[in-house]
């Protein structure tokens, strides 16, 4: 029978060392890991609980931006007024992961490293151009969030590496974001498709910068540059939104499965990108 051990290190270095052992799995909120343990989909020899590392839980403002401890729960994110004001889309993505109960535990790092294409926490982070600080046996490095998932269930992290914190850049004026997803139920469901849109506006209300990221329509979350480009210079006129939707749909390469057909996912991705763009635009102070 497999022997399992549990460790809750207090320093990142100690954690990296423990995680370098074969069969070690990091534990953050645990809302995916415990389901996998129970179903037998994973049988690690060591669980490394990252929550007792200093800085793993909590949010601090730094140079106008935010540093989010990787194991910070969705509930804590949702209660941070400053973060909500600056990055409402990032927070709503994180807050859509599971129920209130799951929100009490689930973290952005877990959501990202579980590497589900449908992860609700990820598209808005990608659209936000967020980065993560990674600790590993060879020290620290910083990488864009979108570089972490490598396919369903796979990440680009090397053995022993784990995410210590996320960094969200400082916000210029007239900037906001939004995340929308579609699920058959109103809650407690996995996204059939999801769209995060991050906008910065000029003073005249035209879009200065736009980033669009889509979930559940490809093996990893997609940053669709053409979709963002379709909005730049516009006030989200109907033609601009149609171009956004078309660009978003053109980037989709989904699978058909029990949660939705490829055709349906693609179509919905366009609808959601359009709707999320309108919400982000209004939040940024734009008037259509």
């Amino acid at each position: 029978m497999s022997q399992l051990a549990y460790l809750a290190p207090s320093s990142p270095e100690e954690a990296a060392k423990a995680l370098a052992a074969s069969g070690a799995r990091p534990l953050s909120g645990g809302t995916d890991l415990l389901v996998q343990l129970r179903s037998g989909r994973t049988s690690p020899s060591l669980i490394v609980d990252l929550k007792r590392i200093a800085g793993a839980v909590g949010i601090r403002e730094e140079a106008g931006g935010f540093v989010i401890g990787a194991s910070t729960s969705g509930a804590v994110l949702g209660e941070h007024a400053g973060l909500l004001r600056a990055w409402p889309g990032v927070v709503e993505g994180a807050n859509l992961i599971g129920s209130t109960q799951v929100q009490g535990r689930a973290s952005l790092a877990g959501n990202l490293c579980n590497a589900s294409p449908a992860a609700d926490g990820v598209p808005a982070l990608v659209a936000a151009r967020a980065t993560c600080v990674i600790v590993g046996p060879n020290g620290r490095r910083e990488a864009p969030v979108e570089s972490i998932p490598a396919g369903p269930g796979k990440t680009s992290l090397a053995p022993g590496e784990f995410i210590l914190e996320f960094r969200l850049p400082a916000r210029p004026p007239r900037a906001s974001d939004a995340y929308l997803r579609l699920t058959p139920r109103t809650e407690m469901d996995i996204a059939v498709a999801g769209a995060g849109v991050n906008l910065v506006l000029h003073e005249d209300g035209t879009v200065a910068e736009a980033h669009v990221a889509l979930g559940a329509v490809a093996p990893t979350v997609l940053h669709v540059e053409a979709a963002g480009a379709a909005l730049v210079g516009t006030r989200l006129e109907d033609e601009a939104l149609a171009a956004l939707a078309a660009a978003a749909q053109a980037a989709c390469k989904p699978i058909s499965d029990k949660r939705g057909t490829a055709e349906y996912r693609t179509r919905i991705a366009g609808v959601l990108a359009r709707r999320a763009a309108v919400i982000a635009y209004q939040r940024a102070g734009g008037q259509r």
Partner: peptide, 24 residues
Amino acid sequence: YIFDAQGQMENPGFLDYRMPVASD
């Protein structure tokens, strides 16, 4: 119930079986 080609149920859990929740 969603069955795959081998006759195995693909959604044997409350996540994908989707019974109504309070907000539905």
